[in-house]
């Protein structure tokens, strides 16, 4: 895997890497992809219908509104202010 590809994946993953880390990640991913490539030799096709045979839509629970978690609890693990999550300025 080349550095362009690993940089693209890092961007998709929202992860920062130093130049050194990128080189190591590229080398690791190359060996990992080598194992993953073994599946290319198998002649199989995915059948999406077969995976859904155990899903029973009739079993869904009733769509009834219930009390949700208190705002205070939802915010307890976050930087917050005035009952809202705090984020960096998004709009100039």
């Amino acid at each position: 895997m080349d550095l362009d590809m690993i940089s693209y994946l890092a961007k998709l993953s929202k992860l920062n890497f130093t130049e050194e880390e990128l080189k190591k990640a590229a080398a690791d991913m190359t060996s990992i992809i080598d194992i993953m490539d073994t599946i290319k030799e198998v002649d199989v096709v995915y059948n999406p219908l077969a995976d859904n045979k155990n899903m029973y839509l009739k079993d869904l629970r009733e769509d009834i509104a219930k009390d949700s978690m208190e705002t205070e609890k939802i915010l307890q693990n976050a930087k917050h202010s005035d009952n809202c999550f705090v984020v960096p300025k998004v709009v100039e």
Partner: peptide, 22 residues
């Protein structure tokens, strides 16, 4: 990184799709 590779455009069928078939 590996997961995003398997799901990314151009690789999805060859990796994730094939893995699901397996």
């Amino acid at each position: 990184l590996l997961g995003n590779y398997a799901l990314s455009s151009g690789y999805y069928d060859a990796y994730y799709g094939k893995a699901m078939a397996l």
